[in-house]
């Protein structure tokens, strides 16, 4: 049976998805960038974006 999910849930999932894509792409870049800054960018940038994406996703499913 197919049940239409609410627009609010879909909007939150979309935000989580964009944050996760940005974080994952940034993580991939840092892995191939040989610079002392790559670790900082990984931990501070990619880690934050992925963490936020996961939190938004969890909030979305908890509030649904």
């Amino acid at each position: 049976m197919m049940v239409e999910s609410s627009p609010r849930l879909q909007q939150r999932l979309k935000i989580a998805a964009y944050l996760l894509i940005a974080g994952l792409v940034l993580e991939a870049v840092t892995l191939y960038w040989s610079s002392p800054l790559s670790f900082i960018l990984f931990a501070g940038g990619a880690g934050t974006l992925i963490g936020l994406g996961i939190i938004v996703y969890l909030i979305a499913i908890a509030a649904a």
Partner: peptide, 21 residues
């Protein structure tokens, strides 16, 4: 699928990425 794509895989990628770094 959403749970795997938006939770399991990103967490795994982050953990493995930390090991690689």
């Amino acid at each position: 699928l959403a749970f795997i794509a938006l939770f399991i895989l990103p967490i795994s990628a982050l953990a493995l990425g930390s090991v690689a770094h």
